[in-house]
Amino acid sequence: MPLRPRFDAMLFDCDGVLVDSEPIVNQVLRDEVAAFGWEMSIEQCIQTFVGASLEGVQARVEQHTGRSVGQGWVDEFTRRRDAALREQLQLIPGAAELVAAADEAFEGRIACASNSERAKVELQLEKTGLLAHFTGKIFSAAETGPAKPSPAVYLAAAESMGPAAQRPLVLEDSPSGVRAGKAANAYVVALAATVNPEALVGAGADVVVDSLSEVRDLIG
Rank of each mutant, 00 (worst) to 15 (best):
28 V>G: 10
30 R>K: 15
30 R>V: 10
30 R>D: 09
31 D>A: 14
36 F>S: 13
36 F>C: 11
36 F>N: 12
37 G>E: 15
38 W>R: 12
39 E>K: 15
40 M>L: 14
40 M>G: 08
41 S>V: 13
42 I>W: 01
44 Q>C: 04
44 Q>E: 15
44 Q>Y: 04
45 C>G: 09
45 C>F: 11
46 I>L: 03
46 I>P: 02
47 Q>G: 08
47 Q>Y: 06
49 F>V: 08
49 F>E: 07
50 V>Q: 03
50 V>E: 01
51 G>P: 01
52 A>P: 00
52 A>H: 11
52 A>W: 08
54 L>Q: 13
54 L>A: 14
56 G>L: 10
57 V>D: 10
58 Q>S: 10
59 A>Y: 06
59 A>R: 14
61 V>Q: 11
63 Q>G: 06
65 T>I: 09
65 T>D: 10
66 G>M: 13
66 G>Q: 08
67 R>N: 11
68 S>I: 10
68 S>Q: 13
69 V>M: 12
70 G>C: 05
72 G>K: 01
73 W>K: 07
73 W>V: 13
75 D>G: 09
77 F>D: 09
78 T>C: 07
79 R>P: 05
79 R>Y: 09
79 R>M: 09
80 R>G: 09
80 R>M: 08
81 R>G: 00
81 R>H: 12
81 R>V: 08
82 D>K: 09
83 A>R: 11
84 A>M: 06
85 L>A: 13
86 R>A: 08
88 Q>T: 03
89 L>I: 14
91 L>E: 09
91 L>R: 14
91 L>Q: 10
92 I>G: 00
92 I>C: 03
92 I>E: 06
93 P>N: 02
94 G>R: 01
95 A>S: 12
95 A>E: 08
96 A>G: 05
98 L>Y: 00
101 A>N: 00
102 A>D: 00
103 D>C: 07
103 D>S: 12
103 D>G: 06
103 D>V: 00
104 E>T: 04
104 E>I: 00
104 E>S: 08
105 A>M: 04
106 F>P: 07
107 E>T: 03
108 G>V: 02
108 G>L: 03
108 G>N: 04
109 R>I: 03
109 R>Y: 05
111 A>I: 05
112 C>W: 02
113 A>Q: 00
113 A>F: 03
114 S>W: 01
115 N>W: 02
118 R>F: 01
119 A>Y: 03
119 A>L: 07
119 A>F: 03
120 K>H: 05
122 E>S: 14
122 E>G: 06
123 L>V: 11
124 Q>G: 08
125 L>R: 00
126 E>W: 05
127 K>P: 03
128 T>Y: 05
128 T>S: 05
129 G>E: 02
129 G>N: 01
129 G>A: 07
131 L>C: 02
133 H>R: 07
133 H>P: 04
133 H>V: 04
134 F>E: 07
135 T>Y: 03
135 T>P: 02
135 T>W: 02
137 K>G: 03
139 F>H: 12
140 S>R: 03
141 A>E: 11
142 A>F: 11
142 A>V: 11
143 E>Q: 06
143 E>D: 14
144 T>C: 14
144 T>V: 12
145 G>K: 09
145 G>N: 11
145 G>W: 10
148 K>R: 15
149 P>K: 13
149 P>M: 13
149 P>S: 14
149 P>W: 12
149 P>C: 11
150 S>I: 12
150 S>G: 12
151 P>A: 06
151 P>W: 10
153 V>A: 05
153 V>P: 00
154 Y>I: 09
156 A>Y: 05
